[in-house]
Nucleic acid binder design. Structure first.
Length: 930
DNA sequence: GCGATCACG
DNA sequence: GACGTACGTGATCGCA
């Protein structure tokens, strides 16, 4: 959630959304969605209003903070004061009711914060935020024409009636009420309000009220002097209805002190995401506004325009291939095309377990087919009873694969896929080595990292304005979801052939752009060649000792039970130890412990730093919770989950690496994540003992030592650091020695620790706050350290300034091997967003270059091992570490080779001015090898 | 589906 | 002078 400070330069816009909806519903002609008749008139009005407003506000008037405010529930504190408050209101009309949630959806699609709070009207929230902003000197515009809000108007706070395009200030208030904003509530208290059922004093209207207040100032004063009033009728009314007037004043007076949950700063404006917004508008079937919004985004260059001469999608053209003759036709067409898109359909997301269900192939836009191979009851005649089904009328899987294999392995035919590592693995498990290949997901990643996601649906939407059939539309969702082998063939064909079609079109669009964007080398030498390497690692998997994990799990379980008893005793009650909410209430509510800190959602923070603070003061419960949490984490995430991850067929654990997940070009690991296996604590390290080598083999772990700091030394060209690495010095001690002017010999470990934190901080785009947090010191002290560091290493500051300047100018940064990360927020007006982008700009080239280097090592590794006739298999990558499994007799030779390949990985593309050091060790378990 | 928490580099 | 912040990830849990 973006956040920005509020000051004199800020301008907050608050949209009175609930009032708008009612007004739009009655003022605008009814409108219903063409496809299903859902009434959407008020939603359309709301979207139009919001869009027009946002367009008008571009340029100097651009708000810095923006929110839509809604009523929630119908019961507020005013009903306690006066049960008849708003009692005259009818239920909202039938046609309006379904539109409320849609309007909330709309405001989210427009990236507007939607605010609401039980027990308060939208007006109270508006009052609270408006006053808060005003107190900080900001300007406020309330978008509403509701006269009840006029009491808020000041020289800083104005109102905007969008339907009449009128700005309302203090003058308008005088016009309407005959008094200034500060007396509006008094007028309303006397005159009453029939729409809200505020009684007021009978017979007194706005005019009279204004006259009376001109004389007496306030309602209280007036009532106190009611006896003096000359007109007998008016005098009597005021005496008789004094209490009613007092209550009325309370009813109309807005509460500007609501305990709001979202801090004002968090209402910072945020540009709507073009794709999300257009998706919503299309779903609503708002033709005109969708077109207008799209044209604006295209003109601004944030949404891709459709290429000229593009062919529309026509799924009628897709073919279901169910006989061998037709299959041969398609194979011939594929050879003619030279480039084809391929997609496999399976019965599971896990490519190590799944069965091949069908294959789709596209040879040109709209020219695509689906070849069902493993569908149950393809004619959908069995009514769910497989025994009654007709014999499946689909080509025999083995025969089809035999016919396809030459095509799929033909050097002259390029096979394009979206996330093709998945399909590569499926084919590999069916005896086919897919080659040569291209991956549209990775093409998009090389071209657009940081600009948008790289999933097929998103890319199709963004580049073709075409929404592919959602998977859940063919397979259903939740409990009722079916596997793809049960999808009827007509639907399966539409879905699968379309995926191949879209993929081919994406390839046609992206491939020529590589060169223009100067990312050809990144894609061709780092990403594409890594696909088969990773696929092989994933498929090989790593052996895990299930019994060992199971024993560890029971041990943890027993100790957790003990801690639970102790915790209940300390707390004086039973509670759910896994619930931060319950824990917070006990610690800071009932036990009233000190130092309670907020979280974003307003709950007590109970994270480790808070609990450690309390434990240090000698409180018992926090320490118990800390210990319990450690065990609970280890058990649920590791000892239990890892057992479940063992593949029943291979008896090994197969992770899946994502190549387009991390913005910097790092890999990430999922299902299970094997890149975050514990090591930092004694307890957690035990889990690594469960990762073992096959009988007669050992595991080898080889890791780059300090690779990111070495890259910093190289990229920023710092002689002192480079020499330290060349001389094999302890880099943190060396930094400390320079900064604090003390000898390395006999150095206080605390001093070295500080220097180490600073070294890491530099890589992260340092701030005094972050460093202070890390070291548990005052911000001033941290600030002094940073100053001392930059004085000793002025080259680092120069590098940081230059990198930020480059990023600001180009809106991207590059790694040493040319990988780009786009940072569109570098130009953001929002200070916090921009600062974040600046830190990314510092960090990404370093983290990304390290990722490039280990990728190069991984790509070179299989061939280097084969050349030395070593049987080592690369199993895992953990950012700066590679894990291998190798026959015990080859361990020594493998270590030497692996070290050499890793050290030389940057060559010949890049000659680093610092040496790369690789530490490697062989052992029976990962715990010992590391 | 999301926030809080915590595991790793 | 005030503001909000360390960089990059994924899994699990409680809770709405």
């Amino acid at each position: 959630m973006p956040s920005a400070p509020i000051n004199e330069d800020s301008h907050l816009y608050l949209i009175d959304a609930s009032a708008y909806i009612f007004r739009a519903f009655h003022a605008l002609p009814p409108l219903s969605r063409a496809s299903d008749g859902l009434p959407v008139g008020a939603v359309a009005g709301f979207c139009n209003m919001l869009w027009k407003l946002l367009e008008e506000l571009k340029g100097d008037e651009r708000p810095t903070h923006f929110a839509c405010v809604f009523d929630k529930g119908s019961y507020t504190f005013r009903n306690d004061l006066y049960p008849d408050y708003k009692a005259n209101r009818d239920e909202p009309p039938e046609d309006l009711r379904p539109q409320f949630p849609l309007v909330r959806e709309a405001s989210i699609a427009f990236a507007c914060h939607a605010l609401e709070m039980e027990g308060f009207e939208a007006d109270d929230l508006i009052a609270t935020y408006a006053r808060q902003a005003e107190a900080k000197g900001a300007r406020v515009t309330i978008v509403s024409s509701d006269k009840d809000l006029m009491q808020l108007v000041t020289d800083k706070i104005t109102m905007l009636d969008t339907m009449k395009s009128k700005h309302l200030g203090i003058e308008a208030v005088y016009e309407k009420f005959g008094v200034g904003p500060e007396k509006v509530v008094d007028v309303q208290a006397l005159a009453g309000d029939s729409t809200d059922n505020v009684p007021g004093a009978p017979g007194i209207g706005v005019k009279t009220a204004a006259t009376l207040l001109g004389e007496y100032g306030t309602v209280e004063e007036l009532l106190a002097h009611a006896e003096e009033i000359k007109q007998p009728k008016r005098r009597q009314t005021l005496i008789d209805f004094a209490d009613q007037v007092r209550i009325s004043k309370q009813l109309v007076k807005l509460d500007d002190n609501v305990p709001v949950e979202t801090p004002l700063e968090d209402l910072a404006v945020c540009d709507p995401d073009p794709v999300t917004l257009i998706e919503f508008l299309e779903k609503m079937e708002f033709r005109t506004i969708t077109r207008r919004v799209r044209e604006t985004f295209e003109a601004e260059g944030v949404l891709e325009e459709p290429t000229q001469g593009e062919v529309g999608f026509d799924k009628e053209n897709y073919v279901c291939v169910r006989d061998f003759k037709t299959l041969e036709d398609w194979i011939a067409r594929a050879y003619d095309a030279g480039v084809i898109a391929v997609d496999t359909e399976t019965d599971s997301l896990d490519c190590q377990l799944c069965n091949l269900v069908g294959i789709s192939i596209a040879v040109a836009p709209n020219e695509a087919c689906y070849i069902p191979l493993g569908h149950i009851d393809p004619d959908h005649t069995g009514g769910g009873d497989m025994f009654d089904a007709d014999p499946p009328r689909q080509i025999n899987k083995a025969e089809a694969l035999k016919a396809l294999k030459p095509l799929l392995e033909d050097k002259a035919i390029l096979k394009v896929g979206q996330n093709i590592k998945y399909d590569y693995t499926v084919f590999a498990r069916n005896g086919i080595t897919l080659a040569p290949i291209d991956d549209t997901m990775l093409l998009s990643f090389a071209l657009h990292a940081g600009m948008h996601g790289h999933g097929m649906d998103e890319l199709s939407e963004r580049y073709f304005h075409h929404t592919p059939i959602p998977f859940k539309e063919v397979a259903g969702t939740g409990q009722k979801q079916i596997t793809f082998d049960r999808v009827p063939l007509d639907k399966a064909t539409e879905y699968a052939a379309e995926d191949a079609d879209v993929t081919l079109r994406l390839w046609q669009m992206f491939k020529p752009r590589l060169h223009k964007e100067r990312v050809t080398t990144v894609y061709e030498t780092l990403d594409r060649p890594l696909i088969p390497v990773l696929a092989d690692m994933e498929r090989h998997g790593i052996k895990v000792d299930r019994d060992f994990l199971s024993r560890l799990s029971s041990d943890f379980q027993q100790r957790m039970a003990g801690l639970e008893d102790a915790a209940y005793k300390a707390a004086g009650q039973e509670f759910n130890m896994g619930s931060p909410k319950q824990l917070g209430e006990i610690l800071f509510g009932e036990m009233d412990l000190p130092g309670g800190k907020k979280t974003k959602s307003g709950q007590w923070s109970t994270d480790a730093s808070q609990l450690e603070y309390l434990a240090a003061q000698g409180h018992e419960l926090p320490q118990i919770i800390l210990d319990w949490r450690t065990l609970s984490k280890l058990r649920s995430t590791y000892t239990e989950a890892l057992q479940d991850a063992i593949n029943p067929e291979t008896k090994r654990v197969h992770t899946s690496y994502s190549m387009a997940g991390a913005q910097t070009g790092r890999l990430s690991s999922t299902d299970p994540n094997l890149q975050n296996i514990p090591i930092r604590t004694e307890e957690g390290r035990k889990i690594r003992e469960a990762f073992i080598a096959e009988e007669g083999n050992v595991l080898i772990s080889a890791d780059y030592s300090q690779i990111e700091l070495r890259l910093l030394a190289h990229i920023a060209d710092i002689d002192a650091l480079k020499n330290a690495f060349k001389d094999g010095l302890d880099i943190h001690a060396m930094t400390a020695s320079e900064m604090f002017d003390t000898p390395i010999e006999g150095m206080d470990p605390m001093v070295r620790r500080k220097a180490k934190a600073i070294n890491f901080g530099i890589i992260y785009g340092i701030s005094a706050f972050g460093l202070a947090n890390q070291l548990g010191i005052e911000r001033g002290e941290a600030s002094d350290y940073i100053k001392a560091y930059f004085e000793k290493f002025p080259g680092i500051r120069k590098y940081m300034d230059e990198t930020k300047a480059f990023a600001k100018e180009n809106l991207f940064v590059k790694t040493a091997f040319g990988r780009k990360l786009h940072l569109k927020e570098m130009g953001s007006k929002n200070g916090a967003q921009r600062a974040f982008a600046e830190r990314q700009a510092i960090n990404a080239p370093i983290q990304g270059s390290a990722a490039d280097i280990i990728k190069r090592a991984m790509i070179a590794m299989p061939e280097a091992l084969a050349k030395k006739k070593l049987d080592a298999k690369m199993l895992l990558q953990v950012h700066d570490e590679l894990i291998f499994e190798v026959p015990e007799s080859q361990a020594e030779d493998t270590i030497k080779l692996v070290q050499s390949v890793m050290q030389k990985a940057p060559l010949p593309a890049l000659q680093l001015s610092v040496p790369l050091d690789v530490e490697a060790k062989a052992a029976k378990t990962w715990a010992e090898a590391h």
